[in-house]
Amino acid sequence: MKDYITIIGGGLAGCEAAYQIAKRNIKVKLYEMKPQKYSPAHSNENLAEIVCSNSFKSNLLTNACGLLKEELRRLDSLLIKIADETKVPAGQALAVDRENFSKRVTEEIEKNPYIEVIKEEVVDIKQMIKDGIVIIATGPLTSDSLAKEIQKITSQEKLYFFDAAAPIIEKDSINFDIAFYGDRYHQEKKKEETIEEWKERLTKQEREEQSYINLPMNQEEYENFWQELIEAEVVTLHEFEKREIFEGCMPIEIMAKRGIDTLRFGPLKPVGFDDPRTRKKTICHCTIKAR
């Protein structure tokens, strides 16, 4: 038997596994194919690079993902600890500074005396599992050659699917005559608040709370947008890539095609806000807002 455990893939799962094993005084060989080879979504040399959203979702215990994070904290998860340390404001959610997060994980893994990081693509698993324990954590963008190897070992036919990432915008290019800050879930009036207190809190919040920017649409704007969206041209997929999409990461144009109101009841729901463009403005300079 080998005197170490092999981990293939230096993403979130692989790095957490490496840390936990090392913590139990076992040597780890952690294989990562970057920078020798990059997946279509990855672009820097760090371990634990995150490419979809920067959000680790809710931190509330009344949210299953929030509860899961708390369970992991209690098990001394390295990655959740670093996510906590590199968080950016995001209301009730735990969102991280991507760059900082993966940099910190990389440092922790590389300085661990039990862990050896080997920057190579693995193609032969069979040999490795003959006399040692192996954890395959190669993620949603597993390289083709390794995917074939996994298919062989597991006698699987189907391994490929799809998911998607959202566009990112520079804040300075947003028109704040229309856009406004605010966290949907803080917007509602609290039971103990008077109307005046509530209005005051909203005003203050729109000045200070910067984790969400909101872009209101009226019916006409929404319906035009929807029309454009469902008629838009999409990227042609490769022959070999079979298209199967699941709810968690469904492309917006696919969701839109389900019906004119689907987005309004999904990611574009207007709940919790009023449209500042329709607010009556006062003349007193002390209360005028910059819009």
């Binding site: 995001a90 990432a165 520079e170 999409v234 207007p270």
Partner: peptide, 25 residues
């Protein structure tokens, strides 16, 4: 509003925002 598009802070400096729910092809 009839609908709201939300953008979520994406970096520490709050200079970048991602479009919530706008994964797309």
């Amino acid at each position: 509003p009839y609908a709201i598009v939300q953008l979520r802070q994406d970096d520490k400096q709050a200079s970048l925002y991602n479009m919530v729910g706008f994964q797309t092809n």
